[in-house]
Nucleic acid binder design. Structure first.
Length: 679
DNA sequence: AAAAAAT
């Protein structure tokens, strides 16, 4: 049945979910979880901040790029902080109490919108609006219809997750709070509830049902849930709810005490109450955009900082207040070293895509941020980690940052959504391009377009997006060029493109203006793009986690998706894991893949381990063993046609099935065959 | 060997 919450039960098939990794193994003795709430309630000096536009945070100019969502320039002035009105909050203590003592002007008055436009940024503002940080943080600030439309108009029309109700859920850890069935089952306050309604969320997704009460009860959490199942809201909603409920504590007064805005970047240091770290800039931006929705009509101001964009602009944005910060690690460290951000009062830490954040490339930066600076220790702060994949070795590492945590697994850790139809096809390197053309013309929902000669041709429609993954940045450029020359409206995203181009590419893809996006791993994780109907692994990745995340760009929030992967003898290292994934997701398995996996199992060591953890085996050694060297089973020269037609390849005893021959898919695949996967 | 993430 559904939602089997298990306490301290060692599940069998849950991929290491439990083992000895559960929180129940006595890491106890740490500080009281509630310490931060109790211990950080020092003096609170109320000093009115600069004039905030009532713009849930985001101005129309962020990160150095003009944001077209709000034409007309920066209409809100950024005057100096207003003179202290000295409502004598000193010693007044913590502000979380609703209906607290200091609420003389309620509700706060918003700035006039549009009208007046803020006085040209002069330093002599005479606006007498209530600064947003004052007042009762649990009470909504006034509506702003323009902002409301901007934030909520594009959101999808509710999530249909009924079919997920029989996904097995495992929650391990001591005193795990009971899950909820509806957003009304837990008190998240009127601000959150109204933003949930505006977002048209009808009922919580499975991961939200469990994570929300866990986070609300101040527990640390390691959460694993399939791609597209609503993880972002699963942490944003309860964290924001807590901040609204408890107020800013010392963070706001500390920022004010840290200095005056000197007009340029400001001298102030900002103390976010919550920090969310993400592995790519676009993902950080996306999370930030979500946080703007859920902080609408609140006193919480979200900010985002990431590399590749104007740091001065980001600093100016911080200057307007920063209570919830979304960041990529490098830029955050930079900001910390410049004294612009202090984590001293950061009570909530989220690692999104946590297994990536803790892998070799990121771990030192995470330790730098979390352990080697002023962030409250684990047990004081609340730490939450989310990902669809979480290799065992990284789970162990992750425990360094967690205290008495709850392990939550919705579905098996690392599994793929059954909403995604997965196909693996044998394609030699030299055939990949022509194969891709066939695939594109066969799978896109076409719209008729006039080509240069006046003939009507069919091109991808804007409601049918195709995401093509390649392994290298060069490869991405080359493939984009190729597709462009073939007449496809396509673009590309990878780490060598400018940040501006990256964001532009993503936006053109999202909007359907370029319905084909060629991408490297930068787009593999977390990005929520509606209408991605087809993910194509032009090059398969070398580890299975990457595969799971890549194909998870389709089949989101209950929609169906298709993922096609080009496989050849370069991909030996992923054979077994790929087979396991296909079997588990009840997908058709090409018999040649089964045979290869069988061979691989008998011919390579270190099987089933991600290369990151292969101990003494460096990546190079592993590759040689697995795929290239004398011990490998992939030395043969088999062509796609041979494979497809069951011809003999160079693998000893490789019995090839007729999965691809039986449906004529092999070398004779043509544009007319749109039906090869059974639709 | 590659990608990502600060300049």
């Amino acid at each position: 049945m559904s939602h089997v919450a298990v306490e301290n039960v060692h599940g069998l098939e849950q991929q290491l979910a439990v083992l000895d990794l559960s929180a129940a193994d006595g890491q106890g003795g740490g500080p009281n979880r509630n310490a931060f709430a109790a211990g950080r309630q020092g003096g609170y000096t109320i000093a009115p901040p600069a004039n905030y536009g009532w713009d849930g945070g985001r101005n129309n100019f962020v990160n150095g790029y003009h944001d077209n969502r709000m034409a007309g320039g920066n209409v809100f002035n950024r005057g100096p902080p207003r003179m202290e009105r000295g409502r004598g909050g000193v010693g007044g203590g913590y502000r979380g109490n609703r209906g607290g003592a200091f609420n003389p002007i309620n509700p706060p008055q918003p700035m006039a919108f549009g009208g007046g436009g803020g006085g040209g940024g002069g330093n002599n503002s005479r606006w007498v609006e209530e600064p947003r940080e004052e007042g009762d943080w649990s009470k909504p600030t006034p509506r702003n219809e323009r902002l409301e439309n901007e934030l909520f108009s594009a959101s999808n029309t509710g999530i249909n997750f009924e079919k997920y109700d029989d996904i097995p859920v495992e929650a391990t850890g001591q005193n795990c709070p009971h899950h909820i069935e509806s957003f009304q089952d837990v008190d998240m306050g009127e601000i959150v509830m109204s933003n949930i309604a505006l977002s048209r969320y009808t009922r919580p997704t499975p991961v939200q049902k469990y994570a929300i009460p866990i986070v609300k009860s101040k527990r640390d959490l390691m959460a694993c849930a399939q791609t597209g199942s609503g993880k972002t809201a699963a942490f944003l909603l309860p964290i924001l709810s807590q901040i609204y409920c408890e107020g800013p504590g010392e963070a706001v007064s500390a920022a004010k005490a840290s200095g005056q805005d000197n007009g340029k970047y400001g001298r102030r240091k900002h103390y976010p109450i919550s920090l969310i770290l993400a592995p790519t800039r676009e993902l950080a931006l996306q999370i930030y955009d979500e946080s703007r929705k859920f902080s609408y009509r609140s006193r919480v101001r979200p900010c985002v900082v990431y590399g590749g964009a104007d740091i001065g602009q980001q600093m100016r944005d911080l200057e307007r207040g920063c209570h919830l910060l979304v960041a990529t690690p490098g830029r955050l460290v930079d900001m910390m070293e410049r004294g612009k951000i202090g984590l001293d009062y950061c009570n909530y830490l989220v690692l999104d895509e946590a297994d990536r954040m803790l892998d070799m490339g990121f771990e030192p930066q995470i330790r730098r941020i979390v352990e080697q600076d002023t962030m409250p220790h684990k047990g004081i702060r609340q730490t939450m980690m989310f990902s669809a994949t979480f290799p065992k070795e990284i789970q162990i590492l992750a425990r360094d940052f967690l205290e008495e945590y709850i392990f939550l697994a919705v579905g098996r850790v690392g599994s793929t959504s059954e909403n995604i139809t997965q196909k693996v096809v044998w394609v030699e390197e030299s055939d990949k391009r022509s194969f891709l053309l066939d695939l594109l013309s066969a799978t896109v929902i076409p719209s008729e377009v006039q080509d240069g000669t006046g003939d009507t041709i069919e091109k991808p429609g804007k409601d049918s997006l195709t995401l093509v993954f390649v392994e290298t940045k060069k490869g991405a450029d080359a493939l984009e060029d190729f597709l462009y020359r073939e007449g496809y409206a396509c673009t590309s995203i990878h780490g060598d493109r400018s940040q501006r181009d990256r964001e532009e590419a993503l936006s053109q893809f999202r909007s359907g203006k370029c319905p084909i996006l060629v991408a490297t791993a930068v787009a593999a994780r977390g990005l929520d793009i509606s209408n991605v109907k087809h993910v194509i692994n032009f090059d398969l990745p070398s580890d299975i986690e990457e595969y799971v995340h890549r194909i998870g760009r389709t089949g989101r929030v209950g929609n169906l998706g298709l993922a096609t992967s080009f496989f050849n003898d370069k991909n030996g290292n992923i054979t077994k894991d790929l087979l396991d994934i296909l079997v588990e997701a009840k997908q058709e398995v090409p018999s040649w893949l089964e045979s290869l996996a069988y061979e691989h199992q008998h011919k390579s060591s270190n099987r089933g381990r991600s290369k990151r953890f292969s101990g003494g085996f460096g990546a190079r050694d592993y590759r040689q063993t697995a795929a290239g060297g004398p011990a490998g089973g992939f030395g043969g020269r088999g062509g796609r046609n041979q494979a497809a037609h069951g011809g003999t390849r160079g693998f000893g005893g490789g019995g090839f099935g007729n999965f691809y021959t039986s449906d004529g898919y092999g070398g004779n695949y043509s544009h007319s065959q749109v039906d090869w996967w059974g639709n």
